[in-house]
Amino acid sequence: MKLLIIEDNEDLLQNIQTYLKREGYICESAKSYSAAFDKVMSYTYDVVLIDIMIPGGSGLQVLRELKSVNPETGTIIISAKNALDDKVEGLELGADDYITKPFQLPELHARIKAVNRRQQRDGKEIINVNEISINTKTMEVTVDGNPVNLTPKEYELLLYFSSNKNHVLSKQTIAEHLWGDYVDHLENLDFLYQHIKNLRKKLENAGADDYIESVYGIGYKFKVH
């Protein structure tokens, strides 16, 4: 998958690139409005990440131009502004998703995947992890063809794991993905354990291997070879 990251901050750019490159993405970057404009006009990308505040112009302008030449491209707006206006304007202009700084890299990754899935039309809504297959359209999960009955939260959890294979995911990160900011104020994230336990049990009962590995004191890892 080919990505363009429009972000003027060197360090942040590096973080995103490092994380995504490890996932096997081809990442290109643009640090200013003019560079972004050139790239958007000259090449096509699967997903473009756009920071709103970039030198030389607005990320929203880039989005507008991108949508005019290449409406199929998936777009995610990154903003330090938690301003509602930006969000509404961005989504109205056709951005597929919106993420505010500071964000978790696995979260960004999950959103890129989700956006990318929506762009695909040719049966790519099926994600396969060895014997497990996830249909993101019907939200059905099967193991070797046997359907697994998951709750919405368990389904989300599995999807999140499959988006961030072989990464250590802290409990905090997972909880935030599933419940959003509500977990901000909670000290005890043990409830997550319940969901993981149930998911693991259901997958195992359906005949899948145990991919979910506990990392002591930290969280979990979806280990796939």
């Binding site: 901050n9 973080n15 700084k101 964000f103 890299l105 250590v168 002591y216 930290i218």
Partner: peptide, 28 residues
């Protein structure tokens, strides 16, 4: 928010390296 994002990302990248449980704890 931007520097915080950077720190957050770096810490996350750090968790993906081979760390001991103690080191993980510090990162967390």
């Amino acid at each position: 928010q931007t520097p915080l994002s950077i720190i957050k990302g770096k810490l996350e990248l750090l968790t993906q390296t081979d760390l001991s449980t103690e080191q993980y704890k510090f990162v967390e």
